Computed example of a mutant assay.
Amino acid sequence: MQQPAKISVIVSTYNNPQVLGMVLGSLAQQRRGRHCADYEVIVADDGSGAETAALIGRLQAAYPVPLLHAWQPDAGFRLAQSRNNALLQATGDYVVFMDGDCLAPSDFILTHSRLAESGKFVAGARSYIKRRRSVAMMAAGTAGRRIRRFVWFWRALFAQANRPFQLLSLPVNWRRNRNPEQWQKVQTCNLAVWRADVDRVDGFDNTYTGHGLEDSDFALRLLRAGVTRKSGRFASVVLHLWHARPGAMRSPNIERFDSLLTSDRIMPVSGLSYLAVQPSARAAG
């Protein structure tokens, strides 16, 4: 399998510096080895205030790898465009997307290095940390602690998290190519893709605003471009901290995604290249 030379980890965030500090701390504590690519971390910031910028500034001086901050003005929920902004700063030949409330086990980068395969994107898994444990971790200030997979496997068995068996590590060639054309349940809380394939589909679609379906749009267009899905289950997992969720509402993106489904389109309505040639568009609502 082709091994990445450098991985760009893109972490999305919005006005949650305490949890972002925990996430960045987990990414600073990654195991390294001959199978592990070099990496950088880029925070895709959808308009956070000064406290988030100050946190990143404090961490940058002593962070073990390059830590970059891709910020755009707060003009509503614009996650797709925020990730494209981060991609403009990324220098890796392989990209891993994470959410800013997901902790990375210490073998996260190493595992993605081993799973990488030409012509495929890797859809990883997540385990949800239960509310009581999440609150205790945030109160204790656990930023910078190493997240050990086997420890969390046992904690999950004792109801501190769900999906305990996702925390097991099975061989990288274990049933990885089931459902290679499935875009459903591909989520950018843990998604890896070659940068060349990101560019092939021109990144995320900036027209997606509000919550949901920007990751489905991205995955479907990758599949149409000939990039198939590889399962990262029982190999690559993130630990999702509990947080309150908004009530159910109709996403403004449903019509956008329905339009994609009924077409054979590969390119976004407005993608990465639009921001690259028109930087002022980052400030547009």
Results as ranks from 00 to 15, higher is better:
residue 194 W to F: 11
residue 121 F to P: 00
residue 125 A to E: 07
residue 128 Y to F: 13
residue 224 R to V: 10
residue 53 A to C: 08
residue 61 A to F: 10
residue 64 P to S: 09
residue 52 T to R: 01
residue 195 R to M: 15
residue 237 V to P: 00
residue 258 D to Q: 14
residue 214 E to R: 04
residue 222 L to T: 06
residue 146 R to W: 04
residue 265 R to C: 03
residue 259 S to F: 05
residue 194 W to M: 09
residue 198 V to S: 05
residue 123 A to H: 04
residue 258 D to Y: 11
residue 89 Q to W: 05
residue 171 P to E: 08
residue 145 R to S: 05
residue 185 K to D: 12
residue 236 S to Y: 09
residue 234 F to R: 08
residue 87 L to Y: 10
residue 6 K to L: 07
residue 217 D to I: 06
residue 9 V to R: 00
residue 274 Y to R: 13
residue 284 A to L: 11
residue 226 G to Q: 05
residue 269 V to M: 13
residue 116 A to I: 03
residue 86 A to H: 06
residue 225 A to R: 09
residue 205 D to G: 05
residue 90 A to Q: 10
residue 127 S to K: 05
residue 171 P to C: 08
residue 254 I to S: 08
residue 176 R to M: 14
residue 134 S to I: 13
residue 118 S to L: 13
residue 176 R to D: 13
residue 202 D to K: 06
residue 260 L to V: 03
residue 180 P to T: 02
residue 101 D to G: 05
residue 80 A to W: 12
residue 201 V to W: 05
residue 37 A to R: 02
residue 44 A to C: 09
residue 46 D to Q: 02
residue 146 R to A: 15
residue 90 A to T: 11
residue 40 E to F: 02
residue 48 S to H: 01
residue 141 G to T: 06
residue 78 R to Q: 14
residue 220 L to A: 13
residue 33 G to M: 10
residue 272 L to G: 02
residue 144 G to P: 00
residue 238 V to E: 00
residue 82 S to K: 02
residue 280 S to I: 11
residue 204 F to E: 03
residue 137 M to L: 15
residue 76 G to T: 12
residue 252 P to M: 15
residue 158 F to R: 12
residue 169 S to V: 12
residue 151 V to D: 14
residue 175 R to M: 12
residue 114 R to V: 09
residue 224 R to Q: 13
residue 136 A to P: 07
residue 211 H to T: 08
residue 74 D to M: 07
residue 269 V to G: 12
residue 264 D to P: 00
residue 240 H to T: 00
residue 16 N to T: 14
residue 285 G to Y: 06
residue 180 P to E: 07
residue 268 P to Y: 01
residue 84 N to H: 11
residue 15 N to M: 07
residue 24 L to G: 01
residue 242 W to L: 01
residue 162 N to A: 13
residue 206 N to L: 11
residue 148 R to P: 02
residue 259 S to V: 06
residue 282 R to C: 10
residue 242 W to P: 01
residue 27 L to Q: 00
residue 40 E to Q: 09
